[in-house]
């Protein structure tokens, strides 16, 4: 098991950096090229949500992201320190009308993208864990 950990200040500009790091490590871990866009988007969504939550509740606290190569899976965990309540992924109604709230759209997108997702809200912060299949031998298998 190899793990990369990254903490960054809760600034929108750093979300792109987190996306780039996650994509690079996913590629090295052996995630298929066809899935890399999904990894990039899902990690970006989780980090964006965390940054917005920190800016509201604890702007001085860093956001934490762990990227793990675990037995043929590439696992990403994004952890924030902002209090959160239960989150239900929402999808916009398909009847042409707009739902008034799209706050959880990011979670809905993650749920639609990641192969395996776990969202753990709590009073001390939210943890979003997601994973995708990867080559057991990482980039060497390519």
């Amino acid at each position: 098991m190899a793990t990369v950990e990254l903490t960054f200040s809760a600034l929108p500009a750093h979300v792109r950096t987190a996306r780039l790091v996650a994509t690079a490590i996913a590629r090295r871990t052996g995630v298929a090229e066809a899935i890399l866009d999904e990894v990039r988007l899902a990690v970006g969504e989780a980090c964006s949500r965390a940054v917005e939550a920190h800016r509201l509740h604890c702007p001085g606290e860093p956001v934490r992201i762990e990227l793990r190569d675990d037995a043929g899976r590439f696992e990403v965990t994004v952890t924030d320190a902002a209090p959160s309540e239960d989150v239900t992924p929402q999808v916009l109604e398909a009847n042409g009308s707009l739902m008034p709230e799209i706050d959880n759209l990011g979670i809905a997108v993650i749920a639609g993208l990641a192969d395996d997702v776990e969202v753990l809200p709590g009073p001390k912060g939210m943890r979003i864990r997601m994973s995708w299949p990867a080559s057991p031998n990482g980039v060497a298998a390519l």
């Binding site: 707009l98 809905a108 997108v109 639609g112």
Partner: peptide
Amino acid sequence: ERILKIFRITGLTKV
């Protein structure tokens, strides 16, 4: 396709 996918996931292709 990679941009359209996010519209599909969220149902926004109908909006």
